[in-house]
Design a binder for these strands. Structure first.
Lengths: 325, 325
DNA sequence: CCATTTGTGCTAACCGGTTGACATACGCGT
DNA sequence: ACGCGTATGTCAACCGGTTAGCACAAATGG
């Protein structure tokens, strides 16, 4: 790898001059500028960003911690995040925590050691205190950690309401909601709050199925749903916390001989791209993933530049009614 | 951020000693080791990896270029890759090329500037020559670039054969294969070669549907498939180059009133997790994504350590027969 | 008691850039 | 001829580590 010194020698100028060209500072004549560019090209020179990062104390790297990028929601999120980040001059280091607390902690340390400019946390398994200790720009995704750490979310309560209300509107008389562990105080839990509120307001019986803490396994979803529907065959409406869960529900219904939407209405969450690819297409609550991603990157940028940021960043959701209701 | 100097002062030792503790070299007494660790802990010190990278000329970062991590196949691939990489002490910088040649080129430059130790290329839009110029450890995913650049793939020809043979075995009389652009010389094109071979050997009429170069859009798949099936209503077997395409095919069939698998047999590719989540579950050719990921990381590691590597790395595929055939 | 081994410190160089201070030189306008 | 803006160079310090070389002291052991 050629260094700035090689370029300087080849161009017949000093290192300082090359650096000035590289950084556009001070006086440089067109002639030398060209000489330098020519030398750089001939040597196929690219400045060593590690050296620059060291000096500038800024790596232009954002750390992104997700449960797993294999989950469609986080896959899409990651894709958008990376695209926006790159367009703003940031690179993205990905970390799949697998929703494992010790891994998450390790990743956080690793990101610190690597001097990332900020961390976008979309996996939340640690104690709130651990995140607070991080004296580093952090943006939380879908979780309110403290009054100091900004978060990006979408209107979970509204999402829960929209879903529950649609189930009732479509004539359901006994409904259930499957969600992740309600123990972690994630903002997504508001969906359940809203679901219960609507059911109670309308005096409709309802059930709650919580997955184990930290579980992302489809087979587990199927198992829980089968149990539920076998025990309560009169349930006629399901609200699921993700489109993947909704697909699992459709599969279980198909196995149990329940027709969707005739015998069972199903509503998913996220509006991930496959939601509209299955038949019947999944009715779902759309999260504005692209906008949430963009906002997250902007917040990191603002934190880095020490601009003031708003802590609460809640974007609207949208009911997308399709074939399962 | 505390530096090694702060640690040294706090522990009452020299910077050299701290460095020796950090790197486990030279003689260190238990007593000082403890003092140093204590100081590190009290200061919440973590060594600056940027500085280390600069000195060592090794960043322990692998660049990963995929078309988009939002595609389930690449999402799963990325997830596995990251996990293996991390377990071997590497971090992963992700790049979504969107199958755009200029973006891919930019990403490659960016990765070089950032001194990544190697690049795993799973997006291939550039001229072979561009990849050859990179004097950097590169592992290609599913493409043979040159005799010098190792690649990881699975047995595409066998995959194509298994699929085509199963369609025939299930009684199909007129079959079609939908694949990406055959212009790019990707190894995945062998699936089509095999498909044609089987059809010709058995004297069965067949069709080919190529997506545009670089297209990853589901709506485009649906459009192409609808056209095909409307023009040739007697087609009774489809082989698709991904499970996503297979889902699109199922959707189109459902729209056209064709029952799967009764009127139409469908075989996908990859065996991504959603393949077994839709009803009917998709018959597919499983690529060993986990193993391919592991192998890719190992190859990068070997290249970095200048061990000899085998250029051709082809893993077996497996037919997973489910409900669509 | 002397030779090693062990433990620690100091100094300086290095990784590949960036930057400020200062010197020098040329061309130009007045 | 003077002053100024432009153009470039030299030098040294710095970012936060690592490392080799050398010195020195204490502990160990034969």
């Amino acid at each position: 790898m050629p260094t700035i010194k090689d370029v300087a020698e080849r161009a017949g100028v000093s290192v300082t001059t090359v650096s000035r060209v590289l950084n556009n500072r001070g006086y440089i004549s067109e002639a030398t500028r060209k000489k330098v560019y020519k030398a750089m090209e001939e040597l196929d020179y690219q400045p060593n960003e590690v050296a620059r990062s060291l000096f500038r104390k800024k790596s232009n790297i954002i750390g992104l911690i997700v449960p797993t990028v294999a989950h469609p929601f986080f896959g899409q999120l990651t894709s958008y995040l990376e695209t926006y980040a790159y367009s703003r001059g940031y690179k993205v280091l990905i970390c799949n925590s697998q929703l494992d607390a010790s891994k998450e902690q390790e990743y956080i340390w690793m990101l610190r050691r690597n001097q990332v400019d900020g961390i976008i946390m979309a996996s939340h398994t640690l104690d709130v205190e651990e995140y607070k200790k991080l004296n580093l720009p952090v943006v939380a995704f879908d979780r309110s950690i403290s009054r100091r750490i900004p978060y990006v979310t979408s209107d979970n309560y509204q999402g829960g309401r929209l879903a529950a209300e649609l189930l009732l509107k479509r004539g359901c008389t006994k409904i259930a909601h499957m969600c992740g562990s309600l123990e972690l105080d994630m903002l997504a839990n508001q969906r359940h709050r809203a679901f219960m509120d609507v059911a109670e307001e309308n005096k409709i019986p309802y059930f709650t199925v919580e997955t184990d803490i930290n579980v992302f396994e489809v087979s587990k979803y199927e198992e829980l749903l089968t149990d539920l529907l076998v025990q309560h065959p009169d349930i006629d409406g399901l609200f699921l916390n993700s489109d993947i869960m909704a697909m699992a529900a459709m599969k279980v219904c198909s196995k149990l001989g329940k027709r969707v939407p005739h015998d069972m209405k199903i509503i998913g969450y996220d509006d991930v791209s496959i939601a509209s690819l299955v038949s019947p297409q999944i009715t779902t609550i759309r999260q504005p993933i692209a906008k949430m991603s963009e906002l997250s990157v902007k917040l990191i940028e603002d934190l880095v530049n020490e601009n003031s940021v708003s802590v609460e960043n809640c974007l609207p959701v949208e009911l997308i009614e399709r074939g399962t209701t």
